Simulated assay, not measured.
Amino acid sequence: MAFRNDDDKKAYWKENLSLLAKLLIVWFAVSFGAGILFVDVLDNIHFFGFKLGFWFAQQGSIYVFVALIFVYMSKMKAMDKRYGVNEE
């Protein structure tokens, strides 16, 4: 795995950190926001028989985290190909 030049290396890591920041913001918004901050508002909505705020605090944030792992994996594969550092 080698970059073509230093500019590609810097651009790759800048894009990688940007992607990580965006995904962490989504995870924070779901886990902290939906599970703690907005729980009272979300509890007025029922989801599979549970209050939505409770569901996000107990289950939803975990599901979102797992989904974000797959999003990160997909985006990184595309980024690796774009910068010529894919392992295939």
Score class of each variant (00 low, 15 high):
62 I>R: 09
51 K>G: 04
4 R>W: 08
76 M>G: 07
75 K>P: 05
37 L>K: 15
25 I>Q: 00
14 K>D: 11
84 G>A: 07
12 Y>H: 02
35 G>Y: 04
64 V>L: 09
61 S>I: 02
76 M>F: 05
30 V>S: 13
50 F>I: 04
70 F>I: 00
46 H>I: 04
16 N>V: 04
12 Y>I: 03
40 D>M: 03
38 F>K: 05
82 R>A: 15
9 K>E: 10
26 V>C: 13
64 V>E: 06
78 A>W: 04
64 V>T: 03
38 F>Y: 12
82 R>T: 07
74 S>D: 11
14 K>V: 12
23 L>C: 03
15 E>C: 03
33 G>P: 05
79 M>G: 10
85 V>G: 08
72 Y>E: 07
63 Y>H: 11
86 N>I: 07
43 D>P: 04
31 S>R: 15
58 Q>P: 08
19 L>A: 10
57 A>E: 14
86 N>E: 13
68 L>P: 11
15 E>F: 01
84 G>H: 05
44 N>F: 09
75 K>G: 07
33 G>V: 01
72 Y>G: 05
44 N>K: 03
58 Q>H: 09
70 F>N: 10
77 K>E: 14
75 K>E: 15
72 Y>D: 12
55 W>F: 08
10 K>R: 10
73 M>E: 11
44 N>R: 08
49 G>N: 06
85 V>A: 01
76 M>L: 03
11 A>G: 02
85 V>S: 05
24 L>S: 14
10 K>N: 09
75 K>Y: 11
73 M>R: 12
69 I>N: 12
49 G>Y: 02
82 R>E: 13
5 N>Q: 02
72 Y>F: 08
6 D>P: 02
44 N>L: 01
29 A>T: 09
84 G>D: 06
42 L>C: 03
78 A>E: 14
59 Q>R: 09
82 R>G: 05
66 V>P: 12
40 D>F: 03
32 F>L: 14
17 L>I: 10
8 D>I: 00
10 K>L: 00
18 S>W: 02
63 Y>P: 06
55 W>N: 01
50 F>G: 15
13 W>A: 01
58 Q>E: 12
47 F>R: 06
45 I>A: 09
35 G>V: 00
19 L>C: 10
77 K>D: 11
59 Q>V: 09
36 I>S: 15
58 Q>I: 10
13 W>C: 01
42 L>G: 07
70 F>E: 05
7 D>I: 06
72 Y>Q: 06
16 N>T: 14
52 L>M: 14
82 R>H: 11
47 F>N: 04
21 A>E: 00
79 M>Q: 07
28 F>H: 04
30 V>P: 11
19 L>V: 05
3 F>K: 02
